[in-house]
Write a protein that binds this DNA or RNA. Structure first.
Lengths: 209, 209
DNA sequence: GTCTATAGGTGGATAGAC
DNA sequence: GTCTATCCACCTATAGAC
Protein backbone atom coordinates (compact mmCIF):
# COMPACT_ATOMS: atom_id res chain seq x y z
CA UNK A 1 0.00 0.00 0.00
CA UNK A 2 3.02 2.24 -0.39
CA UNK A 3 2.10 5.55 -1.92
CA UNK A 4 3.84 5.75 -5.24
CA UNK A 5 5.89 8.79 -6.07
CA UNK A 6 5.20 10.67 -9.25
CA UNK A 7 8.04 9.92 -11.63
CA UNK A 8 8.82 11.76 -14.82
CA UNK A 9 8.87 8.43 -16.59
CA UNK A 10 5.37 7.67 -15.47
CA UNK A 11 4.21 11.03 -16.75
CA UNK A 12 5.49 10.50 -20.25
CA UNK A 13 5.21 6.79 -20.84
CA UNK A 14 1.80 6.09 -22.35
CA UNK A 15 2.07 2.40 -21.44
CA UNK A 16 2.60 2.99 -17.74
CA UNK A 17 -0.13 1.54 -15.53
CA UNK A 18 -3.00 1.62 -17.99
CA UNK A 19 -5.92 2.12 -15.59
CA UNK A 20 -9.08 0.03 -15.84
CA UNK A 21 -12.36 1.55 -16.98
CA UNK A 22 -13.59 1.51 -13.40
CA UNK A 23 -10.49 3.31 -12.21
CA UNK A 24 -10.95 5.93 -14.94
CA UNK A 25 -14.53 6.56 -13.89
CA UNK A 26 -13.43 6.98 -10.28
CA UNK A 27 -10.72 9.39 -11.32
CA UNK A 28 -13.15 11.39 -13.46
CA UNK A 29 -15.63 11.77 -10.64
CA UNK A 30 -13.04 12.47 -7.96
CA UNK A 31 -11.34 15.01 -10.22
CA UNK A 32 -14.53 17.00 -10.61
CA UNK A 33 -15.15 16.94 -6.89
CA UNK A 34 -11.57 17.91 -6.04
CA UNK A 35 -11.65 20.78 -8.52
CA UNK A 36 -14.85 22.24 -7.12
CA UNK A 37 -14.69 21.34 -3.43
CA UNK A 38 -11.02 20.68 -2.72
CA UNK A 39 -9.26 17.59 -1.38
CA UNK A 40 -10.63 18.03 2.12
CA UNK A 41 -14.06 18.88 0.73
CA UNK A 42 -14.98 15.52 -0.77
CA UNK A 43 -15.10 11.94 0.50
CA UNK A 44 -15.16 8.41 -0.82
CA UNK A 45 -18.87 8.47 -0.04
CA UNK A 46 -19.35 11.40 -2.46
CA UNK A 47 -17.53 9.60 -5.26
CA UNK A 48 -19.34 6.32 -4.58
CA UNK A 49 -22.75 8.00 -4.63
CA UNK A 50 -22.12 9.78 -7.94
CA UNK A 51 -20.94 6.53 -9.51
CA UNK A 52 -23.65 4.34 -7.96
CA UNK A 53 -21.18 1.98 -6.32
CA UNK A 54 -20.09 1.38 -2.74
CA UNK A 55 -17.19 2.98 -0.92
CA UNK A 56 -15.55 -0.42 -0.51
CA UNK A 57 -15.17 -0.91 -4.25
CA UNK A 58 -13.35 2.42 -4.49
CA UNK A 59 -10.83 1.20 -1.96
CA UNK A 60 -10.11 -1.79 -4.21
CA UNK A 61 -8.85 0.58 -6.94
CA UNK A 62 -7.35 3.24 -4.67
CA UNK A 63 -6.57 1.73 -1.25
CA UNK A 64 -6.14 5.07 0.48
CA UNK A 65 -7.27 8.60 -0.27
CA UNK A 66 -3.62 9.54 -0.61
CA UNK A 67 -3.34 7.01 -3.46
CA UNK A 68 -6.38 8.51 -5.12
CA UNK A 69 -5.08 12.05 -4.67
CA UNK A 70 -1.67 11.19 -6.07
CA UNK A 71 -3.26 9.46 -9.07
CA UNK A 72 -5.42 12.53 -9.68
CA UNK A 73 -2.43 14.85 -9.82
CA UNK A 74 -0.47 12.42 -11.96
CA UNK A 75 -3.21 12.08 -14.54
CA UNK A 76 -4.03 15.79 -14.56
CA UNK A 77 -0.37 16.55 -15.10
CA UNK A 78 -0.08 14.00 -17.90
CA UNK A 79 -3.14 15.32 -19.74
CA UNK A 80 -1.86 18.87 -19.37
CA UNK A 81 1.52 17.92 -20.83
CA UNK A 82 -0.20 16.35 -23.82
CA UNK A 83 -2.23 19.53 -24.32
CA UNK A 84 0.98 21.57 -24.33
CA UNK A 85 2.50 19.23 -26.90
CA UNK A 86 -0.62 19.62 -29.01
CA UNK A 87 -0.21 23.38 -28.90
CA UNK A 88 3.38 23.08 -30.05
CA UNK A 89 2.18 21.04 -33.02
CA UNK A 90 -0.62 23.45 -33.87
CA UNK A 91 1.44 26.62 -34.22
CA UNK A 92 4.91 28.05 -34.03
CA UNK A 93 3.85 31.59 -33.20
CA UNK A 94 4.59 32.39 -29.55
CA UNK A 95 1.66 34.78 -29.36
CA UNK A 96 -0.79 32.12 -30.51
CA UNK A 97 0.79 29.52 -28.25
CA UNK A 98 0.18 31.74 -25.28
CA UNK A 99 -3.43 32.30 -26.31
CA UNK A 100 -3.99 28.55 -26.60
CA UNK A 101 -2.36 28.13 -23.22
CA UNK A 102 -4.80 30.59 -21.69
CA UNK A 103 -7.64 28.74 -23.40
CA UNK A 104 -6.64 25.62 -21.48
CA UNK A 105 -7.27 27.44 -18.23
CA UNK A 106 -10.40 29.00 -19.61
CA UNK A 107 -11.94 25.65 -20.50
CA UNK A 108 -11.41 24.45 -16.93
CA UNK A 109 -13.10 27.55 -15.55
CA UNK A 110 -16.03 27.20 -17.94
CA UNK A 111 -16.73 23.87 -16.26
CA UNK A 112 -17.06 25.89 -13.05
CA UNK A 113 -13.92 24.23 -11.85
CA UNK A 114 -10.66 25.48 -10.46
CA UNK A 115 -7.36 24.19 -11.82
CA UNK A 116 -6.84 20.96 -9.86
CA UNK A 117 -3.31 21.87 -8.87
CA UNK A 118 -4.20 25.44 -7.95
CA UNK A 119 -6.97 24.11 -5.75
CA UNK A 120 -4.73 21.55 -4.07
CA UNK A 121 -2.00 24.16 -3.66
CA UNK A 122 -4.28 26.02 -1.26
CA UNK A 123 -4.59 22.90 0.89
CA UNK A 124 -0.95 21.92 0.58
CA UNK A 125 -0.28 21.93 4.33
CA UNK A 126 -2.82 19.14 4.76
CA UNK A 127 -1.68 16.94 1.87
CA UNK A 128 0.52 13.82 1.94
CA UNK A 129 4.09 14.44 0.79
CA UNK A 130 3.77 12.71 -2.63
CA UNK A 131 0.88 15.00 -3.50
CA UNK A 132 2.85 18.07 -2.46
CA UNK A 133 5.70 16.97 -4.71
CA UNK A 134 3.29 16.32 -7.56
CA UNK A 135 1.97 19.86 -7.37
CA UNK A 136 5.41 21.40 -7.61
CA UNK A 137 6.23 19.16 -10.56
CA UNK A 138 3.11 20.41 -12.32
CA UNK A 139 3.99 24.06 -11.76
CA UNK A 140 7.59 23.41 -12.80
CA UNK A 141 6.48 21.92 -16.09
CA UNK A 142 4.10 24.81 -16.77
CA UNK A 143 6.94 27.17 -16.14
CA UNK A 144 9.37 25.35 -18.41
CA UNK A 145 6.96 25.36 -21.31
CA UNK A 146 6.17 29.05 -20.82
CA UNK A 147 9.84 29.95 -20.61
CA UNK A 148 10.46 28.40 -24.01
CA UNK A 149 7.49 30.25 -25.52
CA UNK A 150 8.50 33.55 -23.92
CA UNK A 151 12.12 33.31 -25.03
CA UNK A 152 11.01 32.47 -28.51
CA UNK A 153 8.62 35.41 -28.56
CA UNK A 154 11.29 37.74 -27.24
CA UNK A 155 13.75 36.58 -29.88
CA UNK A 156 11.42 37.20 -32.81
CA UNK A 157 10.06 40.43 -31.35
CA UNK A 158 6.54 39.20 -30.64
CA UNK A 159 6.92 39.82 -26.91
CA UNK A 160 8.56 42.53 -24.86
CA UNK A 161 9.42 42.26 -21.19
CA UNK A 162 12.27 43.37 -18.98
CA UNK A 163 12.72 40.50 -16.54
CA UNK A 164 13.99 37.04 -17.37
CA UNK A 165 11.67 34.63 -19.15
CA UNK A 166 11.66 32.55 -15.97
CA UNK A 167 10.39 35.45 -13.89
CA UNK A 168 7.77 36.39 -16.45
CA UNK A 169 6.64 32.77 -16.64
CA UNK A 170 6.12 32.66 -12.89
CA UNK A 171 4.16 35.86 -13.05
CA UNK A 172 1.87 34.48 -15.75
CA UNK A 173 1.19 31.22 -13.92
CA UNK A 174 0.45 33.11 -10.71
CA UNK A 175 -1.87 35.57 -12.42
CA UNK A 176 -3.82 32.86 -14.24
CA UNK A 177 -4.20 30.69 -11.13
CA UNK A 178 -5.26 33.69 -9.07
CA UNK A 179 -7.64 34.84 -11.76
CA UNK A 180 -9.38 31.47 -11.73
CA UNK A 181 -9.61 31.59 -7.96
CA UNK A 182 -11.25 35.01 -7.88
CA UNK A 183 -13.41 34.55 -10.99
CA UNK A 184 -14.89 31.40 -9.51
CA UNK A 185 -15.75 33.27 -6.31
CA UNK A 186 -18.03 35.48 -8.36
CA UNK A 187 -19.14 32.76 -10.77
CA UNK A 188 -17.97 35.21 -13.42
CA UNK A 189 -15.56 33.94 -16.11
CA UNK A 190 -15.24 37.51 -17.42
CA UNK A 191 -13.07 38.25 -14.41
CA UNK A 192 -10.65 35.67 -15.72
CA UNK A 193 -10.73 37.08 -19.23
CA UNK A 194 -9.76 40.62 -18.22
CA UNK A 195 -6.72 39.25 -16.44
CA UNK A 196 -5.75 37.19 -19.47
CA UNK A 197 -6.11 40.25 -21.70
CA UNK A 198 -3.95 42.35 -19.41
CA UNK A 199 -1.23 39.71 -19.44
CA UNK A 200 -1.21 39.57 -23.23
CA UNK A 201 -1.36 43.32 -23.53
CA UNK A 202 1.61 43.81 -21.20
CA UNK A 203 3.66 41.32 -23.18
CA UNK A 204 3.13 43.10 -26.46
CA UNK A 205 3.49 46.60 -25.05
CA UNK A 206 5.91 46.52 -22.16
CA UNK A 207 9.54 47.54 -22.31
CA UNK A 208 9.35 49.99 -25.20
CA UNK A 209 11.65 52.90 -24.67
CA UNK B 1 -28.45 30.95 16.14
CA UNK B 2 -29.03 32.78 12.88
CA UNK B 3 -25.83 33.37 10.99
CA UNK B 4 -25.27 37.08 10.82
CA UNK B 5 -24.65 38.70 7.48
CA UNK B 6 -21.60 40.87 7.04
CA UNK B 7 -22.81 44.45 6.90
CA UNK B 8 -20.79 47.43 5.74
CA UNK B 9 -21.76 49.16 8.96
CA UNK B 10 -20.28 46.38 11.00
CA UNK B 11 -17.05 46.59 9.05
CA UNK B 12 -16.55 50.27 9.73
CA UNK B 13 -18.07 50.84 13.15
CA UNK B 14 -15.34 50.30 15.74
CA UNK B 15 -17.97 49.92 18.50
CA UNK B 16 -19.84 47.09 16.85
CA UNK B 17 -19.83 43.87 18.85
CA UNK B 18 -16.61 44.39 20.79
CA UNK B 19 -15.48 40.76 21.19
CA UNK B 20 -14.35 39.40 24.54
CA UNK B 21 -10.73 38.48 25.15
CA UNK B 22 -11.65 34.83 24.89
CA UNK B 23 -13.37 35.37 21.56
CA UNK B 24 -10.30 37.24 20.27
CA UNK B 25 -8.02 34.37 21.25
CA UNK B 26 -10.30 31.92 19.46
CA UNK B 27 -10.34 34.09 16.35
CA UNK B 28 -6.55 34.43 16.41
CA UNK B 29 -6.03 30.70 16.59
CA UNK B 30 -8.73 29.82 14.09
CA UNK B 31 -7.41 32.46 11.69
CA UNK B 32 -3.96 30.92 11.68
CA UNK B 33 -5.37 27.46 11.10
CA UNK B 34 -7.70 28.63 8.34
CA UNK B 35 -4.88 30.48 6.58
CA UNK B 36 -2.59 27.47 6.58
CA UNK B 37 -4.98 24.53 6.34
CA UNK B 38 -8.22 25.97 4.95
CA UNK B 39 -11.73 26.01 6.35
CA UNK B 40 -12.25 22.29 5.78
CA UNK B 41 -8.77 21.55 7.08
CA UNK B 42 -9.24 22.55 10.71
CA UNK B 43 -11.72 21.65 13.45
CA UNK B 44 -12.96 22.95 16.77
CA UNK B 45 -10.76 20.28 18.32
CA UNK B 46 -7.67 21.85 16.71
CA UNK B 47 -8.53 25.30 18.01
CA UNK B 48 -9.38 23.97 21.47
CA UNK B 49 -6.13 22.06 21.74
CA UNK B 50 -3.98 25.05 20.77
CA UNK B 51 -5.79 27.21 23.32
CA UNK B 52 -5.88 24.59 26.05
CA UNK B 53 -9.65 24.72 26.43
CA UNK B 54 -12.48 22.35 25.50
CA UNK B 55 -14.50 22.31 22.32
CA UNK B 56 -17.64 23.08 24.27
CA UNK B 57 -16.34 26.45 25.42
CA UNK B 58 -15.66 27.42 21.82
CA UNK B 59 -19.28 26.74 20.98
CA UNK B 60 -20.29 29.21 23.68
CA UNK B 61 -18.56 32.03 21.76
CA UNK B 62 -19.23 30.76 18.25
CA UNK B 63 -22.24 28.41 18.27
CA UNK B 64 -21.57 26.98 14.83
CA UNK B 65 -18.51 26.75 12.62
CA UNK B 66 -20.35 28.96 10.14
CA UNK B 67 -20.52 31.66 12.83
CA UNK B 68 -16.82 31.32 13.47
CA UNK B 69 -16.01 31.40 9.76
CA UNK B 70 -18.14 34.47 9.17
CA UNK B 71 -16.52 36.25 12.12
CA UNK B 72 -13.07 35.38 10.76
CA UNK B 73 -13.80 36.96 7.39
CA UNK B 74 -15.40 39.98 8.98
CA UNK B 75 -12.45 40.69 11.24
CA UNK B 76 -9.88 40.00 8.54
CA UNK B 77 -11.71 42.38 6.24
CA UNK B 78 -11.93 45.08 8.93
CA UNK B 79 -8.22 44.85 9.75
CA UNK B 80 -7.36 44.99 6.06
CA UNK B 81 -9.47 48.11 5.56
CA UNK B 82 -7.69 49.79 8.44
CA UNK B 83 -4.36 48.89 6.88
CA UNK B 84 -5.44 50.50 3.61
CA UNK B 85 -6.50 53.64 5.46
CA UNK B 86 -3.11 53.69 7.16
CA UNK B 87 -1.41 53.56 3.76
CA UNK B 88 -3.49 56.49 2.56
CA UNK B 89 -2.31 58.49 5.57
CA UNK B 90 1.33 57.52 5.12
CA UNK B 91 1.78 58.69 1.54
CA UNK B 92 0.08 60.33 -1.40
CA UNK B 93 2.31 58.80 -4.06
CA UNK B 94 0.46 56.08 -5.99
CA UNK B 95 3.66 54.17 -6.59
CA UNK B 96 4.46 54.00 -2.90
CA UNK B 97 0.89 53.13 -2.03
CA UNK B 98 1.05 50.15 -4.32
CA UNK B 99 4.33 49.03 -2.78
CA UNK B 100 2.85 49.24 0.71
CA UNK B 101 -0.15 47.31 -0.54
CA UNK B 102 2.11 44.55 -1.79
CA UNK B 103 3.90 44.58 1.56
CA UNK B 104 0.59 43.72 3.23
CA UNK B 105 0.42 40.53 1.21
CA UNK B 106 4.09 39.87 1.77
CA UNK B 107 3.78 40.04 5.55
CA UNK B 108 1.03 37.41 5.42
CA UNK B 109 3.19 35.13 3.33
CA UNK B 110 6.17 35.56 5.62
CA UNK B 111 4.04 34.02 8.35
CA UNK B 112 3.79 31.01 6.04
CA UNK B 113 0.15 31.81 5.61
CA UNK B 114 -2.09 32.31 2.64
CA UNK B 115 -4.39 35.34 2.44
CA UNK B 116 -7.43 34.20 4.42
CA UNK B 117 -9.86 35.21 1.70
CA UNK B 118 -7.78 33.72 -1.09
CA UNK B 119 -7.66 30.46 0.84
CA UNK B 120 -11.39 30.43 1.48
CA UNK B 121 -12.05 31.39 -2.15
CA UNK B 122 -10.66 28.02 -3.18
CA UNK B 123 -13.17 26.25 -0.94
CA UNK B 124 -16.05 28.56 -1.79
CA UNK B 125 -18.33 25.78 -3.07
CA UNK B 126 -18.30 24.23 0.41
CA UNK B 127 -18.88 27.42 2.41
CA UNK B 128 -22.11 28.76 3.93
CA UNK B 129 -23.66 31.61 1.95
CA UNK B 130 -22.71 34.41 4.40
CA UNK B 131 -19.07 33.43 4.11
CA UNK B 132 -19.28 33.43 0.31
CA UNK B 133 -20.72 36.92 0.40
CA UNK B 134 -18.04 38.06 2.82
CA UNK B 135 -15.30 36.93 0.45
CA UNK B 136 -16.72 38.89 -2.46
CA UNK B 137 -17.05 41.96 -0.27
CA UNK B 138 -13.37 41.67 0.63
CA UNK B 139 -12.28 41.41 -3.00
CA UNK B 140 -14.60 44.28 -3.95
CA UNK B 141 -13.03 46.55 -1.37
CA UNK B 142 -9.51 45.62 -2.46
CA UNK B 143 -10.49 46.46 -5.99
CA UNK B 144 -12.05 49.80 -5.10
CA UNK B 145 -8.98 50.94 -3.22
CA UNK B 146 -6.68 49.83 -6.05
CA UNK B 147 -8.82 51.58 -8.66
CA UNK B 148 -8.42 54.88 -6.83
CA UNK B 149 -4.64 54.41 -6.57
CA UNK B 150 -4.33 53.38 -10.21
CA UNK B 151 -6.42 56.28 -11.51
CA UNK B 152 -4.40 58.67 -9.42
CA UNK B 153 -1.16 57.19 -10.72
CA UNK B 154 -2.38 57.37 -14.28
CA UNK B 155 -3.40 61.00 -13.88
CA UNK B 156 -0.04 62.15 -12.56
CA UNK B 157 1.92 59.94 -14.95
CA UNK B 158 3.33 57.55 -12.38
CA UNK B 159 1.56 54.58 -13.99
CA UNK B 160 0.91 53.55 -17.55
CA UNK B 161 -1.59 50.95 -18.64
CA UNK B 162 -4.02 50.56 -21.49
CA UNK B 163 -7.09 48.95 -19.90
CA UNK B 164 -9.41 50.59 -17.40
CA UNK B 165 -8.25 51.00 -13.82
CA UNK B 166 -10.92 48.49 -12.85
CA UNK B 167 -9.48 45.86 -15.16
CA UNK B 168 -5.93 46.50 -14.05
CA UNK B 169 -7.02 46.32 -10.41
CA UNK B 170 -8.55 42.91 -10.97
CA UNK B 171 -5.40 41.74 -12.66
CA UNK B 172 -3.25 42.89 -9.75
CA UNK B 173 -5.44 41.22 -7.12
CA UNK B 174 -5.48 37.99 -9.12
CA UNK B 175 -1.72 37.99 -9.64
CA UNK B 176 -0.96 38.65 -5.97
CA UNK B 177 -3.38 36.00 -4.72
CA UNK B 178 -2.04 33.49 -7.22
CA UNK B 179 1.52 34.38 -6.38
CA UNK B 180 0.90 33.65 -2.70
CA UNK B 181 -0.73 30.35 -3.61
CA UNK B 182 2.21 29.17 -5.70
CA UNK B 183 4.95 30.64 -3.51
CA UNK B 184 3.55 28.82 -0.50
CA UNK B 185 3.60 25.54 -2.43
CA UNK B 186 7.35 25.88 -2.67
CA UNK B 187 7.83 27.49 0.74
CA UNK B 188 9.63 30.17 -1.24
CA UNK B 189 8.60 33.82 -0.71
CA UNK B 190 10.94 34.83 -3.53
CA UNK B 191 8.38 33.43 -5.95
CA UNK B 192 5.98 36.02 -4.65
CA UNK B 193 8.50 38.83 -4.95
CA UNK B 194 9.25 38.24 -8.62
CA UNK B 195 5.54 38.49 -9.40
CA UNK B 196 5.25 41.70 -7.41
CA UNK B 197 8.23 43.15 -9.26
CA UNK B 198 6.76 42.25 -12.63
CA UNK B 199 3.49 43.93 -11.74
CA UNK B 200 5.24 47.14 -10.71
CA UNK B 201 7.52 47.02 -13.71
CA UNK B 202 4.62 46.64 -16.13
CA UNK B 203 2.82 49.58 -14.57
CA UNK B 204 5.74 51.91 -15.02
CA UNK B 205 6.72 50.67 -18.48
CA UNK B 206 3.61 49.60 -20.31
CA UNK B 207 1.77 51.56 -22.94
CA UNK B 208 4.61 53.73 -24.20
CA UNK B 209 4.35 54.29 -27.90
C1' DG C 1 -14.26 -6.53 -8.75
C1' DT C 2 -18.10 -5.43 -6.14
C1' DC C 3 -20.84 -6.24 -2.38
C1' DT C 4 -22.45 -6.15 3.03
C1' DA C 5 -21.04 -5.21 7.32
C1' DT C 6 -18.38 -3.07 10.48
C1' DA C 7 -14.47 -1.18 12.86
C1' DG C 8 -12.26 2.88 14.92
C1' DG C 9 -11.84 7.53 14.70
C1' DT C 10 -13.19 12.40 14.21
C1' DG C 11 -16.54 15.90 12.76
C1' DG C 12 -19.83 19.62 14.64
C1' DA C 13 -22.95 20.27 18.18
C1' DT C 14 -25.83 20.05 22.74
C1' DA C 15 -27.29 19.28 27.81
C1' DG C 16 -26.51 20.30 32.15
C1' DA C 17 -23.28 20.72 36.30
C1' DC C 18 -20.22 24.07 38.32
C1' DG D 1 -17.85 31.03 30.78
C1' DT D 2 -15.87 26.68 31.09
C1' DC D 3 -16.27 22.13 32.16
C1' DT D 4 -17.74 16.72 31.57
C1' DA D 5 -20.34 13.78 29.15
C1' DT D 6 -22.59 12.47 25.29
C1' DC D 7 -25.06 12.37 20.64
C1' DC D 8 -25.13 11.28 15.94
C1' DA D 9 -23.44 11.82 11.46
C1' DC D 10 -19.64 11.14 8.72
C1' DC D 11 -14.84 9.87 7.79
C1' DT D 12 -11.17 6.48 6.04
C1' DA D 13 -10.35 1.86 5.93
C1' DT D 14 -10.73 -3.40 6.36
C1' DA D 15 -12.69 -8.29 6.49
C1' DG D 16 -14.84 -11.58 4.18
C1' DA D 17 -18.87 -13.36 1.24
C1' DC D 18 -20.21 -13.61 -3.58
Amino acid sequence: MAISRISKKKLRDPQADAPSEAAKAILDTAEGLAQTRGYNGFSYADVAEQLGVTKASLHYHFPSKADLGTALIERYHRVFLRALEAIDLRTNEPDKKLRYYIELYDSVLNNERMCLCGMLAAEIATLPIPMQEGLRLFFDENEQWLIAVLEDGLRIGAFRFKETANERARMIVAALEGAMLVARSYGDPARFHVVASSLLSDLSQAGRT
